[in-house]
């Protein structure tokens, strides 16, 4: 009865619409979920996991409805088109003990530069790594030098330095697990994330 009364009050008052959630698959087509932890001040254990659904919020038992043939509202579709592009990763490889990218990595550099230039308000995270040949201290230094080498190259190509940050992880994050003093072309790398 009380719920009915509230519903009637909402019908009479303009702008009394309730909050809602539209759940969608992510860009890779994977469907995650959203849990309702609290509704109207009460703890809840509802989990919304149906993709392409709409749920009225504020009820302890979430009741998702399929979007159906009508799909998204025009303003929802418009909102989604303004999401920024996903972050993109690039990996450059290095000759042993050097800060020189391999010949194969040259084309990756070109693609990286183009990706940064194409973005609005970009942020670039450049992280250097080494293999396990040499001491940890030397590798910390070398990994940072590799990252700085890439950052400097990008700066030389006209990318603003303030958009970029270089750091070195030495031999702490091996791509290919290995024993100490093991030469690995896979581990000698710089990873760049463009946001």
């Amino acid at each position: 009865m009380r719920a009915l009364g509230l519903g009637a009050a909402c019908l009479m008052l303009a702008g009394c619409a309730t909050s809602s959630l539209v759940l969608l698959p992510d860009d890779e087509g994977h469907q995650g979920s959203v849990a309702v932890l609290e509704a109207d001040g009460q703890a809840s254990q509802s989990v919304i996991s149906q993709g392409n659904s709409r749920t009225k919020l504020g009820e302890a038992n979430a009741n998702p409805q399929p979007l159906g043939e009508k799909g998204l509202k025009p303003e929802e579709a418009a909102l989604l088109t303004t999401l920024p592009p996903p972050a993109k990763s690039f990996t450059l490889y290095f000759d042993q003990g050097t800060t020189t990218p391999t010949v194969e990595s040259q084309s990756v550099l070109t693609a990286l530069r183009a990706e940064i230039a194409s973005r609005s308000g970009p942020q670039v995270e450049v992280t250097g790594h080494t293999d396990t040949v040499g001491s940890e201290e030397d590798n910390d230094r070398l990994s940072l030098q590799r990252a700085e080498e890439i950052l400097n190259w990008l700066a030389g190509q006209g990318i603003d330095r303030s958009l970029m940050l270089a750091s070195g992880r030495g031999e702490r994050d091996l791509k290919e697990p290995s024993i100490d003093n093991f030469s690995s072309a896979t581990n000698r790398r710089v990873e760049v994330i463009v946001r």
């Binding site: 702008g15 539209v22 994977h30 849990a35 919020l57 504020g58």
Partner: peptide
Amino acid sequence: MKVRTPNTLLGVRGTKFIVEVPE
């Protein structure tokens, strides 16, 4: 990751979604 609206607290478990809170 949590999202709070005036009447709900949501826990985000990895996905894409839209939250709408009318005036």
